[in-house]
Structure formats: structure tokens, C-alpha cells
Design a protein around this nucleic acid. Structure first.
Length: 349
RNA sequence: UCCGCAAUAGCUCAAUGGUAGAGCAAACGGCUGUUAACCGUUCGGUUCUAGGUUCGAGUCCUAGUUGCGGAG
């Protein structure tokens, strides 16, 4: 797939946060039909470092990955690790300053450095640094988050243009993140502000489900309605298969979520044979089940092994169980995306 | 045969004479821009047996049973 067509059709990108889909080789990943992956700016910065990434030719070369690569800006980590107090650090107007809990090293993530790191990673689709917050924050906090996100997005764009020549010269795409929590007018304000700056794609940021686990459809709709039709919409972190179907109807085409791979490792598999799609492979009922995980699936796992085997491997803590489970879940998501694209084509004809 | 040590949840072990707990296993659930092969809930007991002392015994005493070690 060519970069200019990114997001024209539905696409699911699994999260290879530190440059790998856990328990899979790049070859195994390719065999699931995956066309693009997401890596994380902050984690690669701390694990490999900008200079080494640059010297080594970027993470795609290291991974031997020929597909597309989207890099997340680190905004989510600023939220999930620093705002929540799990890591020591401060969020300020210039970005975030924090201390590695393992090495003690001090890191400074700014809008400009985030772009630089993403370029050294060798990203195809970059994401602006944003001030991500939890749902249920006060209006005042949401306003600060939106203002900061807009400010940082503009700085990212300027830096991307001046230092790298923007989309035209670099050949890369720059997407931005819409914040505003559950305040619809703030979502609209943020979206419009970002459109004024101008980006290749618009990402729905923050939390995509409420406390009950329901997709925040109203917020997501506002973002679609206030961003250009010819630019891709990326539903960051979405999600369950049913939520991807819903988002696709709203106009989002780009998806990523940790659920598909993390659930696989934790024994929650997806199967069209099961009412509700969820098959908890570790449960006792599968201990002697000789059927494949999904009778409609063409993945390596389903073609070669039965439920009892995957059940046994995961129960026994064998890493191969995680591999087989991850392969299946990834294939399930790719087939879900294929189906959405088929349906979209049928509507257009 | 004698001497010593032990016996508590399915397993490995805690518990001043004062409400018998933990880890693992089991059953089930959760996970949404990954600090997560993680987290949570539940299930789980004639404390080897029979007596005794005591207001009260898993704990102290007596006898037995089983296991482990040593002596002969």
C-alpha cells in the first residue's frame, strides 16, 4: 500500500510499542495480513535512543518490516505514566520532563523533540504531541488540555515543515490529535483549531470508552463532523471488534488497539463460532475441545492446532501459546477489516 | 525394637494458649494511542486419630497411626 492512500480504506495497525509485536517474529506478523504497525516514540527513545535509532537506520530496518509504520507521539504515556503519578515527572507548557524509573535518566519530551524522535525512528505517519487526559476531568482541565494540545500541534507542524520540509519534501504524513474529553464544544473547538493549522490526518484522542465500557459515539462524531472529508480519521485505541465496526460507520478508517495482542496473551480470543465473538481459551470447557479456535479462520493457528492445544499451552505458561493466540487474534482483526472494506466497496458500486 | 523429628486447604508452608492465613493450583471475570506472559473475584479446612489439662488447644500433656532420619 502506498502512503498517499493511507486511510482511504479501513486499516488496523497492531501495537509494536517497542519495535515488536510481542511473541511474534516479523515474518509471522506479515503472515497475518498486517499492513501497518504502531511503535511508540517514548519507549523507543528510552530503550534505544535517538542517536542509535538514526545510526541503525530506524526501527523498520531493524525489524525488517516492509509495511507502513505509524509512530505514536508519547502523549498517551505522558498521561498514563506521568499524570497518574506512576512515574515521577512534570507536564508543563513546553512538554513533559520525567525520570526513567529504571535508569534514573532525565528525559525531556517537547513537541519539537517528539517530531525529531519520530523521524529518527523512521516513521511513515507521525503524530503530534498532545496533552492526553482521563475522562471525567473538569471543564477547566479539559480547556487547558485542548489549548496545550493546539499549541503543541502547531509547534510540531512548524518544526516538521522547517526542519524536514513537511509532507511534500519528507514524503511522510503528519497527523494530529483532537482532545476535549467529553465536552462536545471543546472537541469541536480543538478539531477546528487543528484544521486551521492543517494536517494529513485527524486522530481521536483521549479515552474512547466511558466507565461502562461504551464507545463515546457523540464525541467521536463531533470530530468527524469538524474535520476535512478527504483526510483520514484515526480512532486511537479502538478497540473491540464491535467498536471498530461502529467507528467505521462514523467515518473512521484507521485503528489500533492493544486489546488484540494483550487479550491473546491473556487468553481472550476472538471467534465467529462464539456468540459475542469472545472465546476465553483458558476456561475448562476447552480442555478437550478438538475444534479450531474459529472454524472460519485461515490463520496458521486455526489451520494446524485445536482449542485444547492452545488451552494447554497458555495454562502451562508456554510462550508458544502466546504466539499462536496472538497470530489468531491478529488474523481475526485483519479479516474484520477486510470485511468492512468489502462492504464499503459494495456500497460504492 | 529403641531414640529423634514431623503431620494444618489439592500442593508448599504460616499462625505468644485467644477470630486458622499466605503463595501456588482450580473456577470465573477484566484488559481499549501496552510500565501488563498482567490484574481482580471466588472456591477452598473433622489443623492425622482418641483422650486429657484449660474459661479457651493447631499450639501444652498421654497414647496411637503414618512418614522421614538415626541407633541396633
Amino acid at each position: 500500500m502506498k502512503l498517499k492512500d493511507f486511510g482511504k480504506k479501513n486499516i488496523f495497525m497492531p501495537d509494536a510499542t517497542r519495535g515488536a509485536i510481542r511473541f511474534l517474529t516479523t515474518e509471522q506478523l506479515e503472515q497475518t495480513g498486517t499492513k501497518a504497525v504502531v511503535t511508540n516514540t517514548l519507549h523507543l527513545l528510552m530503550n534505544i535512543g535517538v542517536e542509535n535509532l538514526y545510526k541503525l537506520g530506524g526501527i523498520k530496518k531493524m525489524m525488517n518490516w516492509n509495511g507502513l509504520l505509524l509512530t505514536d507521539s508519547g502523549g498517551f504515556q505522558v498521561f498514563s505514566l506521568i499524570h497518574t503519578g506512576k512515574w515521577k515527572g512534570k507536564v508543563h507548557e513546553n512538554g513533559a520532563t520525567f525520570k526513567s524509573p529504571t535508569t534514573g535518566q532525565i528525559y525531556e519530551l517537547t513537541p519539537e523533540s517528539s517530531i525529531d524522535i519520530q523521524m529518527s525512528i523512521g516513521s511513515d505517519i507521525l503524530v503530534t504531541l498532545d496533552d492526553c487526559r482521563n475522562t471525567g476531568i473538569s471543564r477547566k482541565e479539559a480547556e487547558i488540555s485542548v489549548q496545550r494540545t493546539l499549541n503543541w500541534a502547531e509547534r510540531c507542524k512548524n518544526h516538521f515543515e522547517k526542519k524536514y520540509g513537511g509532507t511534500r519534501k519528507s514524503g511522510k504524513l503528519l497527523s494530529c490529535v483532537v482532545q476535549g474529553s467529553n465536552y462536545l464544544d471543546l472537541r469541536e473547538k480543538c478539531a477546528k483549531g487543528l484544521v486551521n493549522i492543517g494536517f494529513d490526518g485527524y486522530n481521536f484522542g483521549g479515552f474512547v470508552v466511558d466507565k461502562e465500557g461504551n464507545l463515546v459515539v457523540d464525541e467521536m462524531s463531533v470530530v468527524v463532523e469538524n474535520t476535512p472529508k478527504d483526510k483520514f480519521k484515526y480512532a486511537m485505541g479502538v478497540g473491540k471488534p464491535e467498536d471498530i465496526r461502529k467507528c467505521s460507520k462514523l467515518g473512521y478508517t484507521v485503528f489500533d488497539t492493544v486489546l488484540v495482542t494483550r487479550n491473546a496473551r491473556h487468553g481472550t480470543l476472538y471467534s465467529s463460532d462464539i456468540n459475542g465473538e469472545v472465546l476465553r481459551i483458558m476456561n475448562a470447557e476447552y480442555s478437550v475441545d478438538e475444534r479450531p479456535i474459529d472454524s472460519n479462520c485461515d490463520c496458521y493457528t486455526c489451520r494446524n492446532f485445536n482449542r485444547a492445544y492452545v488451552h494447554h499451552l497458555l495454562k502451562a505458561g508456554e510462550a508458544t501459546g502466546m504466539t499462536l493466540a496472538t497470530i489468531h487474534n491478529l488474523r481475526y482483526y485483519q479479516r474484520l477489516i477486510d470485511e468492512l472494506n468489502l462492504n464499503a466497496n459494495a456500497l460504492n458500486l
